[in-house]
Design a protein around this nucleic acid. Structure first.
Lengths: 333, 333
DNA sequence: CTGTTAGCGCTTTCAA
DNA sequence: TTGAAAGCGCTAACAG
């Protein structure tokens, strides 16, 4: 029998073998109920005998549906994303979709380029923590179904993780522990999440009459956290809330290097629960909801693909404080 | 019939705008040297202005090449893989390929299913740490170019990370620090990597006359490491080498809970450098080479696609010990 | 129910 | 150097 060579058996060969039109072969696969049972049977037999497998690419070109979606993230290796990616995969799989993964390297231009490269082979796109401008995002969204994660653009379906709630809780937690002077170590100034977190600490600290200062770590990294320690200490604070867990770990390392005990002498809170309870002492942090965000974004996209309607939906996921081992009573309390 | 989906500026529109034939637009992208520089320029300008992006699907149908590869991993969220995924992405991008990402959830059947779904829309596949049987792998490799990472199947191009070298160094390192009694906390018994690591400790410990015991953590996880601590201590060891970093962190947490100081009273070595210097104290571990593996696997695949020849190549990447803060002199030395 | 006939967007001879 | 035209394999009106 004909082995499956590349560029294999086509619909025409099956049609000829079964003595029907090409369209019937097509229908036998996509709308069998439109054909008489015997015809379907005959076609399937012929197909089987010839080793026919429908060509995905041709079908996609014709229908515009490829059964693929794309997910673009700024950095696959940032521990915040893998769980989200995984959740998105699982959800896409439930609808029998395959997912393209794109990595923008935190670069708006590369993100734009990726969007272009995926266009034409995916039915919809999920953009997580995009670095792209609102304009470009809107432009792409006009071309095809697009869902945003952690970016608030009016009119475009989006899933927002509200780290503000968790950060607020963290601030309250520190206040209860007796801390009166705290610092927020901020992340990328252009990041939507950073703005949100910063605003949340400010608000919560204000309500409780805490002294609040800011130290900037521009890039969220272990190094940046490490280097922020001097500035933090200079503010006379007894606790710090970091933009994310990786930065928080850098701060912890810097503190340890100076012989400052955590949580005895100083308290540290991270954000995103990227590390889990993995570290010693385990990091007090804010839950990330990234798994739910990934799942929700995909199911939203699937809905859009079904209904062809792109309504202006905005889902907000609240976060919460996870108290672990890096926060304690303020010294002298 | 595909009702002109919102989606696409086509070659025809560009052709019209530039006042040339469609074929010229095509050539402007695929064989610019066949056109006069001005024509190319004019076409590119028009394309730019209209926001034209070549349609991959259509091109694929016409040429038989889709410019896509698939990468299948057991668990995206396992910190070992993201850097590898990222590296693979980058390398694929250099050849202008898009990558499908598949997550098998450590399940052989799901892995098989994914392979099937990707077939027909990718030119080649990379299987990282596959859980599939040799037979199935061979079967798939017969259908299309396939590269393996961390799986040794004769006849199939593969990239192997030899964690044995690094583990050997780790053992020597501990011996030099005066440790005489060590334990290896092993991972999944079916894992190729675990067998390799276990054999390496045994060999190195034997050569140096160290007392070596084994404690099994069946599943590599923080919890498993935590629970292994009692058994480890019961062996009377002064140092432990863990299957991976996550397990090592569990051990560290367990040690800390018992008030055992690291590295003063006990030394711990991880494997895979999944956490970097992130933790406090930073974990002494074995480099993973996962970045190189991802990059190499893709470039190998690209070569195969170019030459149409699937030679039996096997690349081995050696690993090395990374000494950080969790190893020190044996107590009483 | 089934066949005919246009395409989907792009590449690729073959001529000019 | 460029254009015209014939597909790649499949789907989807539109007839019959």
């Amino acid at each position: 029998m004909a082995a499956e060579r590349r560029g294999g058996v086509t619909i025409s060969q099956v049609a000829e073998a079964a003595g029907v039109a090409r369209s019937s072969v097509s229908r036998a696969y996509t709308r069998p109920h439109m054909l008489s049972p015997e015809t379907v049977e005959r076609i399937k037999m012929a197909a089987e005998r010839l080793g026919y497998v429908p060509n995905h690419t041709a079908r996609a070109l014709s229908t515009g549906r490829h059964g693929n979606v794309a997910l673009i993230v700024p950095d696959v290796a940032n521990p915040f994303f893998p769980p989200m990616i995984r959740a998105a995969q699982v959800e896409a799989d439930r609808s029998d979709f395959c997912v393209f993964l794109g990595n923008s390297d935190e670069d708006p231009e590369k993100e734009d380029k990726l969007l272009g490269r995926f266009a034409g082979q995916v039915e919809g796109i999920i953009l997580a923590s995009p670095r792209l401008s609102d304009e470009r995002i809107v432009a792409h969204a006009a071309l095809r179904p697009l869902v945003l994660i952690n970016r608030n653009v009016e009119g475009i379906p989006r899933v927002l993780i509200d780290s503000g709630t968790g950060i607020g809780e963290a601030t309250a937690h520190l206040a209860e522990l007796g801390h009166r002077n705290i610092v927020y170590v901020s992340g990328p100034s252009t990041s939507w999440s950073n703005k949100q977190r910063r605003a949340a600490v400010r608000k919560a600290a204000g309500e409780r009459g805490l002294d609040l200062s800011f130290v900037s770590a521009s890039v969220p990294s272990f190094e940046a956290g490490l280097q922020a320690v001097d500035a933090i200490l200079a503010k006379g604070a007894s606790a710090a809330i970091a933009f994310d867990d990786v930065t928080a770990q850098g701060i912890l390392a810097g503190l340890a290097a100076r012989g400052i005990g955590v949580p005895k002498d100083f308290s540290v809170v991270g954000c995103d629960d990227a590390l889990g309870p993995l570290t010693v002492p385990a990091l007090t942090t804010v839950s990330s909801r990234s798994v739910e965000a990934g799942k929700l974004a995909v199911s939203l996209l699937m809905e859009m693909l079904q209904s062809q309607a792109l309504r202006d939906a905005s889902y907000v996921l609240e976060t919460h404080l996870i108290v672990r081992g890096t926060t304690g009573r303020a010294p002298g309390q």
